[in-house]
C-alpha cells in the first residue's frame, strides 16, 4: 500500500516538475521566437557602400589621368593602398600591394619584398579582412554586381569550401614563386598574377587605357582578350555568387584572411546574450557563422551579422573584453 502511494507521489512530482520545466522552456522559447521574428529583413548595406565608394574615389582621384589616358606619376605612388587597386588605373594615386610585391620579388636586386610584406603584415594584424569589406574598390564592384536581380542566387555549392583554398595556391604560385624563380636572362621575373589573372587590372587599368589611348589600342593581343574573358566571367559570376573573386581567387584576401583570427580589430559574440536564432549566420553572405567563430578567416567584417543580431550579442572593436567569446 505504502509502495503504491509512494509511486503515485513520485509520478505526481515528476508531472509537476515537468510542467514547471515546460513553462520555463516555453517562456524562453517564446522570447527566442520573438527575437528571431525580428530577424527576417536583411539589414541595409548602403552605409558601408558609401564608405567603400568614398575610399575608392579618394584613392583614384587623379582626374587628369582619365581625361588624357595616362597615369599619375607623383610621389604618392611610393605608398601602397590596402586594397586591390591597380596602379595602372588612370586615377590611382597609390600602388597596388600585390603588384608591388611581385615587382620587388621579381626584380634583379632583391629576393624578397620586406617593404610590401611588412605593410601587409601591419595592415593585416591591425584590421584583417576589414580591408576587403570596406577599402577594396574591386570588392565594391562585386558587391554592387550582386545586387542585380537574378532568379536563383547561389549561396553555396558542394565544393565551395574547397574552392576557397584556391586563393592561397594563387598567392603562393603566381604572386611569390613564379616571379621569384621564373626569370629572364637578366634575372627579372614577371608579375604573373597581374599578367594572367588580375581582373582589377583589366577593369581599372586595361579597359580605360585602351579606350583612351590609341597606342595602347594598337598593341592589344591574345593576353588582353584572355583577361577580358576572365573579367567577364567574374562579372557574370558576381551576379549569381556573392564576391566570387574574393572568395576563391584574391591573393590579397588570402594574406589578410590569415590575420583575421589574431587582428587587433575584432568581432565578439557574447554567449550570455546570444539566443542561438541563427540570424547572424543567415545574414552572412560569406557563409560564416559568428557564433562558432567570430573571426573566421573568410569574414570580410562587413558588419551584417552585427546588424542582424536581434539580441545585440555581436560587437566589434579594438578593445579587449575578456569575458566574451572569440
Amino acid at each position: 500500500m505504502d509502495k503504491e502511494l509512494n509511486k503515485d507521489i513520485d509520478k505526481t512530482s515528476v508531472k509537476v516538475s515537468n510542467k514547471k520545466w515546460d513553462k520555463k522552456s516555453d517562456k524562453e522559447g517564446n522570447q527566442k521566437k520573438k527575437l528571431a521574428g525580428k530577424t527576417g529583413r536583411q539589414p541595409s548595406e548602403w552605409p558601408r557602400h558609401g564608405i567603400q565608394l568614398l575610399w575608392a574615389l579618394i584613392t583614384n582621384s587623379y582626374l587628369a589621368g582619365f581625361l588624357q589616358g595616362r597615369i599619375y606619376e607623383g610621389k604618392l605612388k611610393n605608398l601602397c593602398v590596402p586594397g586591390l587597386n591597380c596602379y595602372s588605373c588612370p586615377g590611382a594615386l597609390g600602388s597596388c600591394p600585390i603588384g608591388a610585391l611581385q615587382a620587388v620579388i621579381g626584380s634583379r636586386n632583391y629576393q624578397w619584398a620586406f617593404y610590401v610584406s611588412g605593410f601587409l603584415i601591419f595592415v593585416g594584424a591591425l584590421v584583417g579582412r576589414f580591408v576587403c569589406g570596406f577599402l577594396c574598390p574591386f570588392g565594391l564592384i562585386q558587391d554592387l554586381l550582386h545586387k542585380i536581380p537574378f532568379p536563383k542566387k547561389l549561396r553555396t555549392f558542394r565544393s565551395d569550401r574547397l574552392l576557397r583554398k584556391l586563393k592561397y595556391a594563387i598567392l603562393i604560385l603566381f604572386v611569390i614563386l613564379l616571379p621569384m624563380f621564373l626569370t629572364d636572362i637578366l634575372g627579372q621575373g614577371s608579375p604573373w598574377f597581374c599578367k594572367l589573372i588580375c581582373p582589377a587590372g583589366t577593369l581599372e587599368g586595361g579597359i580605360p587605357l585602351v579606350f583612351l589611348n590609341s597606342a595602347m589600342r594598337s598593341a592589344i593581343g591574345w593576353l588582353y582578350a584572355w583577361k577580358n574573358v576572365l573579367l567577364s566571367a567574374i562579372i557574370l559570376a558576381s551576379i549569381v555568387i556573392y564576391r566570387p573573386f574574393c572568395k576563391y581567387l584574391c591573393p590579397l584576401g588570402a594574406v589578410y584572411s590569415v590575420f583575421n583570427p589574431i587582428s587587433v580589430f575584432r568581432y565578439r559574440t557574447d554567449p550570455d546574450k546570444c539566443v542561438s536564432c541563427g540570424a547572424c549566420a543567415r545574414a552572412c553572405k560569406m557563409n560564416c557563422d559568428p557564433v562558432k567563430n567570430s573571426n573566421d578567416p573568410e569574414c570580410i567584417r562587413c558588419g551584417l551579422c552585427k546588424k542582424a543580431c536581434p539580441a545585440g550579442a555581436i560587437s566589434c572593436g579594438w578593445k579587449e573584453r575578456e569575458s566574451l567569446s572569440d
Binding site: 610590401v116 595602347m216 588582353y224
Partner: peptide, 14 residues
Amino acid sequence: VFEKAVRICMECIG
C-alpha cells in the same frame, strides 16, 4: 615600387 607604379604596367593591363 615607385618605378613600377609610375609607368603603365603592360602586364597588369593585359
